[in-house]
């Protein structure tokens, strides 16, 4: 049984004049332990798709199954990482990391313990009492990672996690994410990442799902067979980049 399965998922929004179809007839499944990247042109509904999987946004039709069961409302086995970091500026790093735990009814003692574990894992030891405005973008996104990991989700959902960062910061955080994902003691093994940066998807993911736009639909579902660690300058990597680009250009 796949960990997550989308069956004929569609989403449309009601507008004053008619409806806007954002996603149409999306079907795919994700196995436990997979790192799946969803790529597509802007307007293909890829961020909406991530929110449908999380349950913040409701489906218009179709089904999202988690371990074979239909999910109603928010799937508490998932956690989101945002492009914009979405930190609360008046809370310290530690309080930002603990925030998601309080909402899930986790005791103060356990919140404290988990915050300390995941702050350590993302390299934020020493920053516990800092406020977001004291932090660089890279440090802010590490807080975003720690906050999502602290809920100990089964699936990590990442919405353009590196897109707001400069190139050197993004290189560092991508490496750190891979280290976290591959660490034997990490509870979350399954990652779904939305990105518009094709090289990023090829560098990180086991599988790439390409969406076409307006309305978004699956135009390709490709297992990435490149050995890790992946060399962005290799011919095989370039061939992959060309392949995914052409799929987006033709169908997008």
């Amino acid at each position: 049984m796949p960990l997550l399965e989308l069956r004929n998922v569609s989403k449309s929004f009601a507008l004053p004049r008619g409806t806007l179809a954002v996603l149409e007839d999306i079907s795919f499944s994700v196995e436990e332990g997979e790192f799946v990247a969803i790529v597509g042109p802007s307007g293909c509904g890829k961020s909406t798709l991530l929110r449908l999987i999380n349950g913040i946004v409701s489906l218009s039709s179709g089904q999202v199954l988690y371990r074979g069961k239909q999910v109603d409302g928010i799937n508490l086995e998932t956690a989101l990482v945002f492009q914009s970091f979405a930190l609360l500026p008046w809370l310290s790093v530690k309080a930002n990391v603990e925030m998601g735990l309080e909402a899930r009814g986790i005791s103060a003692e356990e919140r404290e313990k988990r915050a300390s574990i995941y702050i350590d894992k993302v390299g934020l030891d020493g920053f516990e009492e800092a406020y977001p405005r004291e932090l660089s973008g890279g440090m802010k996104q590490r807080v975003g990672f720690a906050r999502a990991l602290a809920v100990e989700p089964q699936v990590l959902l990442m919405d353009e996690p590196f897109s707001a960062l400069d190139a050197l910061t993004a290189i560092t955080l991508r490496e750190e994410l891979l280290d976290i994902w591959q660490a034997p003691d990490m509870s979350v093994k399954t990652i779904i990442m939305v990105t518009h940066i094709i090289e990023e998807a090829i560098e990180l993911a086991d599988r790439i799902i390409v969406l076409g736009s307006r309305p978004g639909r699956v135009v390709a579902d490709l297992p990435v067979d490149l050995p890790r660690p992946r060399d962005r300058r290799s011919d095989a990597f370039n061939a992959w980049t060309d392949k995914v680009f052409s799929l987006i250009e033709e169908r997008g």
């Binding site: 660089s136 400069d166 050197l168 910061t169 993004a170 290189i171 560092t172």
Partner: peptide, 9 residues
């Protein structure tokens, strides 16, 4: 973080 990115690069 920039320094770390430079090393990786």
């Amino acid at each position: 973080t920039w320094v770390f990115g430079l090393l990786e690069f």
